[in-house]
Structures are given as C-alpha cells and as structure tokens.
C-alpha cells in the first residue's frame, strides 16, 4: 500500500515538491508576510485624535509625524548608538576572532567557538539583567572604580548631557556598554569565518616579501577580513536599531526607536504611528544590506 503511494509520488514529482513546500510556505506567507503586509497597510492609516480609534483610510499623515523634531531626534540617536556599538564591537571582536582563526590549535578552536556561541544563544534577558547588577550605583563596577580612585572620572563622564545620567545603570554610557556586550558574539563569528579563509601561505608570502608583522596585518589581513566585519555589522547594527529592552531597562526619558514603537502601540494605542516608525529600521536595514552585498559581506555569513 505504502509502496503504491510512493510510486504514485514518484511519477508525480511536482506533487511531492508541492506537498513538501506547501506547509512551510503557506505558514510563512500567511502568518509572516501577511503580518508584514498588514503592518505596511497600517502605516498608511491614521488615528483619530479625539476618539483614539484607527481611521482606515489611506493617508501620509502618519508618516509626516515621523519628521517632527522629537521623532527625528529619536532616529538620529538610535542610528548613532547603533553605529558606535558596531564600531566598538568590531574593534574588540577582532583580536579574539583573529586568534581563533589563525593561532588556536584545532582542539582549542572547537572550545573557543563554543565559548563564543554559548552567549549568542543563551538568554538575552538574563544577559541584560547581569549588567543591571554590575552597573548599579552600589554595584560591582562602582566598587571597582572606587577601589581605583577613579570615581571622579566616572562622575565627570556622567555629567555630560548627551551620554550621562544619574548613574551608569540609567545612562546612555551604560546602554552602550550593554549593547556592545550583548551583540559581541554576532561580530566575532563572521570575522572569524572570513579570516579562516585567508590562506596561511598568503601571510607567509607577505612576510617573505619583507613585510613587518604590522604591515602584513594592515595590508593583507585587514582588507581580507573586511567582508566579515561588514557581515557582523549587519547584525550589530540591525539588532541595536530594533531593540527596546535595553533602552527601557537602562535608559532615561530620551527614547530610542524600539522604545518609541513599543510605547506608541502600547500605552498610546497608536498602531499606525508605531507601524510607520518601524518602517524606519526596515528601510535603514534594506539600504544597509544592499551596501553590504556590494562589499561582499554575504560570503562571510
């Protein structure tokens, strides 16, 4: 009986393809693409200021609201944070990625890769929470800074309007540290992958031709690792852009995109504005991905 069904399938390969592909595609199309489409549609609706009800009529009014100074500031603030996080992540990811790719023995490499991957998969919230403990005014970092008699420096830093706050746990500096920490594994792995593809013979050839280690690094390794850096930056940038947990937990009254979206849909009940606001990161990411593809980042993913 099963054989007969199997034979029927064999004679109708297109039917098999349809049966295999059908469930996942229907699911993804209906649930995911359908939702994205509704999001897009909603961004063209507006909200009645008096009743708070959504008016289901096409309008660009909601998009216009994005360009109020307050919202513009939110976009700039978030994008700057994402850029800063990306830059610093690339800086501190590089040595470890380089070490794993080019110096670690195969055994050590397996362990190091696991050590990098575990934070990537383990609870995001708990990792944020860990920093809440560390950055608290009475917490371990302050204690350590006191120990080094650097509390003056910390207070001086926190006194800056743009990056400071009442304590590390409630300031853009704190958020910045947490973002760097949370997304770091996403930067290490692509850089490591792209460095892995730099053949050892190339490094030898370079030093053979009389290059000093630093010159080899600058002229050979860095350009070859660049696609990996760009690939990693896709994650760090996109993830920072859309995050609302870290700003909610560690931020002050100055909103970030994710936070704004969260509060517009939640307390304000303004889904059209939340939807329009979300199109910001989507658009930024699409541009980013197009540029990244130009730079060859997809080979390093």
């Amino acid at each position: 009986m099963l054989t007969r069904i199997s034979t029927f399938f064999h004679q109708h390969p297109r039917l098999v393809l349809f049966l295999l592909l059908g469930p996942p595609m229907i699911y993804m199309t209906v649930v995911y693409l359908g939702s994205l489409f509704m999001l897009l549609v909603n961004s063209f609706y507006s909200i009645d200021d008096f009743t708070g009800m959504v008016i289901r009529e096409f309008t660009l009014k909601t998009y216009a609201q994005l360009f109020t100074p307050a919202n513009r500031e939110i976009f700039v603030r978030t994008a700057s944070m994402a850029a800063a996080v990306t830059f610093v992540d690339a800086l501190i990811a590089f040595p470890l990625a380089y070490y794993i790719a080019k110096f670690a023995s195969p055994r050590l490499k397996t362990w190091l890769l696991i050590a990098v991957t575990i934070p990537l998969w383990s609870s995001y919230l708990v990792r944020v929470y860990a920093w809440k403990l560390i950055l608290a005014k009475e917490g371990i970092l302050s204690w350590f800074i006191n120990l080094l008699h650097l509390d003056g420096v910390l207070e001086w830093l926190l006194s800056f309007e743009a990056i400071g706050g009442s304590s590390l746990a409630l300031s853009p500096i704190g958020m910045f540290i947490v973002f760097v920490y949370i997304w770091l594994p996403y930067m290490i792995l692509p850089i490591q992958t792209s460095l892995e593809r730099v053949p050892g013979s190339l490094l030898e050839a370079s030093s053979d031709l009389g290059a000093k280690p630093f010159q080899t690094f600058r002229n050979v390794i860095l350009p070859l690792a660049f696609p990996g850096v760009v690939a990693g930056s896709i994650f760090t940038f996109s993830l920072t852009l859309g995050d609302f947990i870290v700003p909610l937990v560690l931020g002050n009254s100055k909103f970030f995109i994710g936070q704004a979206v969260y509060s517009y849909q939640g307390t304000a009940g303004n889904i059209p504005l939340a939807a329009a606001m979300t199109m910001g990161p989507v658009l930024i990411m699409i541009i980013y991905l197009l540029v990244a593809r130009r730079l060859g980042a997809f080979d390093a993913l």
Binding site: P24, M25, M28, T29, V31, Y32, L33, G34, S35, L36, M38, L39, N42, I234, S238, L239, L241, G242, D243, F244, I257, G258, V261, Y262, Q265, I271, A274, A275, T278, P281, V282, M285
Partner: peptide, 21 residues
C-alpha cells in the same frame, strides 16, 4: 530568504507586525 527574514529583521518588526495582524 523568506525563512531567514524573521531573524534578519529587527525583532521588533516581527513583533509589531504580528501585533498589527
């Protein structure tokens, strides 16, 4: 591409999209 989209786009996009739907 379609399958990777939900983790490639910021989580908030997926979230707000589902919320809208």
């Amino acid at each position: 591409f379609l399958l990777v989209l939900p983790i490639a786009l910021p989580g908030i996009v997926t979230g707000i999209a589902l919320r809208t739907a």
